[in-house]
Structures are given as C-alpha cells and as structure tokens.
Design a protein around this nucleic acid. Structure first.
Length: 273
DNA sequence: GTTCTAGAAC
DNA sequence: GTTCTAGAAC
C-alpha cells in the first residue's frame, strides 16, 4: 500500500499542519510535528516527526540511516529537536495518566530499528503495551524493551559521543540484524516470564498493568494516611476499576490529550485503515 | 491494516 | 475437538 508507506512524509511536508485531520494532528513546532499513532499499541501512543528545514531536506529525513550518514552535526541537531519535543510530550502524557488512571507510569521514547513507513518517526509510547491495536507477536516485539528492536532515542544520541567506526556500524540499522528479533518468543517485559501464546500474553500484560496501578494507589493512600491530606486522586472501590474497559471498546479511543477535540474525531482515530 | 485458512499446538 | 499461529491475498 504505497499511500500508507508515504503518509508520514505527506504530513511532514504540510505547510500548515493543523490542516491534517484532527484525529491525527496533535501539535507542531517550527521543526517538529506530533501526531497520534493511528494504531495505538499502548494506552498512549504518539509519533513525533521532524519537519524539513533550510538545511535538512525531506529526503534527508527519509529514515534514520540516511539522516545519520548525511551530516553528523545536522543529524544531531535534528534529533535533539525531537528529544526536547518528546520530553514536553511526555510531561503532558503524565498529566493525563494522572487524570485518567490515577497514577503515572513509564513512557518509552525511541525508534523502530526497521521502520515500516517512510520518514523518520519517533515513537512516544506509554510502557504498558495494552493498546487496542496490539494484536500480533510482531507488534509486541517491536516495542518490548526485551527484544532489542526498539531503539531508545537516548541510545541514538549517545552514538555521537562514540568512536566514528562504531557510529558508522550502528547507524546502519541492518535489516538482517534486527528483523529476526520480531519473530522471537515473547517474554513479559515486566517479569521476564515467557508467555505461551499471544492471547495469554495480552491478558498477562493487562494484569501486570492493573497490579502496577493498585501498587501506586496503595502508595498514594499511605501518603494520605500519614499526612492526613487527600491526594490528587479520589480513591476508587474495586468495582469501579475501569482499566479493562480502557483496553477495548469506545473508552480505548480516548487516547487524546486535548479535551477540546470533538468525540467524532476521536472515534475516527481508530477507523483509519 | 483485515480476512481466510492449513496445519501446529494443546 | 478446539485454540492458536503465520502466511497469503486483499
């Protein structure tokens, strides 16, 4: 599907990004564009794209190896731009985690070693892998920190301090080295235990997430008990837990951060394909 | 991305 | 027999 392959490049080329469908567009700066991932693999899943500048063309931004080979200084500048935008985004996601889930958890920031679409895109994804579009072993392994296919932005940035030969080797991101990782057996990224098949893994991930949440709630309650001050989140009784409904159904579509977006456009996030 | 299906795993 | 995977076709 050629349209799918080039869709990110088309977004990145937009002179006026807010023209991008509101279900996709999130925000932009002079040098970056942030969009919702159309197929969220976690409760929160965004992409940050570099936009072309006077010194970095749309072709230089085709993929990471191209950018890294082009010009070390400009490559570094581009990636630092993505980095600062990702930190701002993470802060917003954490706010939203607190509001919607009553606690915050990790956010991963990095690239797929072998991307499936043209134009550099940085994944900013919450560390749960319980998203509605998480459906195959390949999906899971492409984000699990255990598989080595997901390359943290920090690792790429550290290449600029490495020996030139190491920089050259690592910045190739060879298919032959990374693609086999997608086929490996899956282990839970929380507890390292192997999972027999995908449905079992999914259920396990959700229960790990719920455990994390309960743990955080207990900690907050302890803080409340010791200070006598009510924390930012109201306590929830067991029956009121809404985690499972967030993993599927209309609730899962609520992965936007800006409260102003109309409900219709939220729904279309998931109906893109 | 989804749907379909042969054959493997249980 | 049922559940699940993975590849092909779309």
């Amino acid at each position: 599907m050629p349209q799918r392959f080039n869709i990110l490049r088309a977004y990145a080329k937009k002179q006026h990004p807010p023209n991008i469908p509101s279900a996709i567009y999130f925000s932009h700066t002079e040098t970056t564009l942030t969009i919702f991932d159309a197929f969220p693999k976690s409760f929160f899943h965004f992409l940050i794209l570099p936009r072309r500048t006077s010194s970095v063309s749309i072709f230089d931004l085709a993929n990471l190896p191209t950018l890294l080979r082009k010009d070390k200084f400009k490559a570094r500048e581009t990636l630092l731009g993505l980095n600062s935008e990702s930190l701002r985004l993470r802060a917003k996601i954490e706010e939203e985690m607190q509001v919607r889930f009553g606690f915050k958890w990790d956010v991963w920031i990095g690239f797929h070693a072998v991307p499936s679409m043209e134009h550099i895109h940085l994944h900013v994804i919450s560390a749960d892998l319980c998203g509605k579009a998480m459906r195959t072993k390949k999906h899971y392994n492409s984000f699990s920190p255990k598989s080595g296919f997901f390359i943290p932005l920090a690792d790429v940035l550290s290449l600029f301090d490495a020996a030139p030969s190491y920089y050259d080797t690592m910045s190739e991101f060879k298919k032959s080295q990374y693609e086999p990782k997608l086929k490996e057996d899956f282990v839970c990224f929380h507890c390292d235990l192997p999972q027999r098949n995908f449905p079992i893994l999914k259920a396990h991930l959700l229960s790990e997430f719920q455990q994390l949440r309960k743990q955080a709630q207990r900690q907050q309650e302890r803080a409340v008990d010791s200070t006598g001050i009510q924390g930012p989140n109201k306590r929830k009784r067991e029956g009121e837990d809404d985690t499972s409904s967030m993993s599927q159904g209309p609730q899962a579509k609520k992965c936007q951060l800006d409260e102003d977006r109309p409900r219709e456009s939220q729904n279309s996030i998931m109906d893109l394909d």
